[in-house]
């Protein structure tokens, strides 16, 4: 009984601290919501900045981001590009990981090193050369059509080394007994891959899918220079459209930022465990 009071006091102290930290972390989000709800001119000409929305409050900012801000189209482009990248990366990574984990073939070491070395060549380093190449083959140009834009946005990301090695690690964790049993049952290599290896490593593959989604949907630099007309803007690029020079639509930009973050936020809430496993892969054994 006597020890209960200080323990409860400590718990309350932790709650206070945790709540204060939560407020600090969430404060920028609150400010964005407040500015999305504020009339643009009121925001622009407010004498003293306020943490509250300026009146008249504009509840329709989020719908106007679609009707006036044209956010629907970039969302579709982002959705399609993300879908293609995630599907392709998962397929290519599973295949390559299988070869590295279970098959013996000439030059295996060299091929593995060449794959791993691409981790040192992020798209930012090779940016101007890659843009140059895609310009020469006609995928990047001011007159790029739908197919060309989607191609330019996805082609460099159809395969990626991180996924290969993450999934290979998962494959290597499959017990040898399971492999031997499958072999005795007459499974071919592809049969083993499809019926045993992939189902058994589903958690790892699932984590990778989430990570791939996150990085494909959130990327900015590559789309910024591979899309030359705002017709094919991704959501992230569309955020540039809302500037300070147009007070009428100032708040739409902040609404758009919230909308752009929503799909990932939903994923984070639904698949929290898997996503965290993916994010911490490599950091914690």
């Amino acid at each position: 009984m006597a020890t209960d009071a200080p323990r409860r006091g400590a718990a309350i102290g932790w709650y206070v601290l945790l709540s204060a930290l939560s407020l600090i972390v969430l404060f920028p989000v609150w400010m964005t919501i407040a500015r999305a709800l504020s009339d643009g001119s009121a925001t622009l000409f407010a004498r003293t900045p306020s943490v509250l929305p300026y009146s008249p409050i504009q509840w329709d900012a989020f719908s106007r981001a679609f009707t006036e801000g044209g956010l629907g189209r970039p969302l579709l482009v982002s959705g399609l590009v993300t879908l293609i990248i995630v599907a392709a990366q998962t397929a290519t990574a599973v295949g390559a990981a299988y070869a590295f984990a279970f098959l013996e073939f000439p030059f295996k070491r060299i091929v593995m090193v060449l794959c791993a070395a691409t981790l040192l060549l992020p798209i930012e380093v090779t940016l101007i050369a890659n843009i140059q190449t895609l310009q020469e083959v006609g995928l990047v140009s001011p007159s790029q059509g739908f197919g060309e834009a989607i191609g330019a946005l996805t082609l460099p990301f159809l395969a990626q080394a991180f996924g290969i090695f993450l999934i290979r690690q998962g494959f290597l964790g499959i017990p040898k007994d399971l492999r031997d049993a499958a072999q005795l049952d007459g499974y071919s290599d592809l049969g083993f891959l499809r019926r045993v290896a992939v189902p058994v490593t589903r958690p790892v593959i699932g984590s990778f899918v989430l990570i791939a989604f996150l990085s494909a949907y959130n990327q900015y630099v590559w789309p910024r220079f591979s899309v030359k007309t705002n017709r094919w803007d991704t959501v992230q690029l569309a955020l540039r459209r809302f500037g300070l020079d147009n007070p009428d639509q100032l708040n739409l930009g902040f609404a758009a930022a919230i909308i752009a973050a929503l799909p990932v936020l939903v994923l984070l809430l639904v698949f929290q465990k898997q996503l965290i496993r993916g994010l911490t892969a490599g950091a914690v054994k």
Binding site: V25, Q236, L239, V264, L265, L268, Q272, I276
Partner: peptide
């Protein structure tokens, strides 16, 4: 962990 949902642009 929620700021994971926010891209650099956002």
């Amino acid at each position: 962990s929620s700021t994971v949902a926010s891209s650099v642009a956002v």
